[in-house]
Design a protein around this nucleic acid. Sequence first.
DNA 1: AAAATTATTTTGGTCTGCCAAAAATAATAA
DNA 2: TTATTATTTTTGGCAGACCAAAATAATTTT
Lengths: 216, 216
Amino acid sequence: MHQQTIENYLKTIYHLSDGNSFVVTNKDLADRLHVIPATVTEAVKKLHQLKLVEYEKSYGTRLTSQGIKQALNIVRRHRIWETYLAQELGFGWDEVHELAEELEHIKSDKLVQKLAKKIGNPAYDPHGDPIPDEKGRFQKPEFKKLADAKVGRTYTLSGVADHSAAFLKFLDRYKMKIGTTIKVVEIENFDGSMLTVCNSKEVRLSLQVVSNLLVR
Amino acid sequence: MHQQTIENYLKTIYHLSDGNSFVVTNKDLADRLHVIPATVTEAVKKLHQLKLVEYEKSYGTRLTSQGIKQALNIVRRHRIWETYLAQELGFGWDEVHELAEELEHIKSDKLVQKLAKKIGNPAYDPHGDPIPDEKGRFQKPEFKKLADAKVGRTYTLSGVADHSAAFLKFLDRYKMKIGTTIKVVEIENFDGSMLTVCNSKEVRLSLQVVSNLLVR
DNA sequence: AAAATTATTTTGGTCTGCCAAAAATAATAA
DNA sequence: TTATTATTTTTGGCAGACCAAAATAATTTT
Ligand SMILES: [Mn+2]
Ligand SMILES: [Mn+2]
Ligand SMILES: [Mn+2]
Ligand SMILES: [Mn+2]
């Protein structure tokens, strides 16, 4: 099995199982990886032989501890690259994911280590996602959706649930980024939209938007 | 054909034809790419269909202008990465080639452009090889082998003919790098070795070594 | 000019990652 | 508890990148 294929499967299983080792379904994997379920069946069998996943047929797949370890390493690489590209080379947070998707497969721990050092071993990537350290450790931040926030309170934007370039560019237009404070002025309970104050301006944000903004 | 395969073939053809469009032999390609000649036969046929090479059977292969263009772009990427890794991330000149061999395939001109800018759009890579610009232009420096140098003269190390880590580390031990001046004190015509002065020290260099040192 | 050597191409396979369609299993709705 | 629907697995195939061995062609030696 090609290393790159393995890595993409492991990372995807990891994300679908929400970081923990919940069982992941073949169809979900197929959808995320843009292949058909039959392809996934074959792949997870091979991953099983490599002892990277536990696999019970017709039930699902979960990472073994070995699998988690590798998955975390790839996640680390991905997020280190994203952060590096943004901080060191001036890429926008809407551009870094696609590039990191390729760069994460470059096989050199030394390189990742140097990149990380250069940007000061950050704990979070440009989207607010935590970066595992060399040993895979990280504390997951306690976010909540802005959609679940209370009127009158002020929050700090700390993450995004939607990583699409479209959404991130939308946020750019409102100068919203990780760290921006958002005050909830009023919630329209007809459509769930929120009136907020953001960069000293009043902005109305749709339910779509506020449920993809993660705040603290 | 996989893009990466194409790129590796084009780059190798380019190097084997010494930058110009000399005809390259199947066997030479096979040796450099670590495949057997039969594989090359298949590959060059496909490259021909893609109009990237001219190919006359049982004669050889040469890059078309389209092929040269692409080859130069890959060479550019490779050398930009090498320089970036060395200058910006502190990798040794003996380490950068292997990494660049992977990184050169990341498909983003914007990335390469940013890397290049960060290191000041250099004209030469850490081994003294010229870096083509975005349009593929570069002037090839006029090197000569130290082996062909004259007694009593002083030269500047400007390139290396052998890019192996072993050779580069050897040079490191003598603190020789691009820019170091070398004075030829004496040539032993029994074995072709040279007595030189290098970093204010007398050093005897074997024929092997002096024929891989390119000087100006 | 033969003979011997070397290079190239052809032919028949393997392996990997994928898909389409059919068959087998769940899971859900009626 | 049947149907109906959704998911998973099996089966048979395809394309790409490769190789081994045999068949050709070119080059070099004698
Ligand atoms: Mn990403
Ligand atoms: Mn991210
Ligand atoms: Mn190199
Ligand atoms: Mn180089």
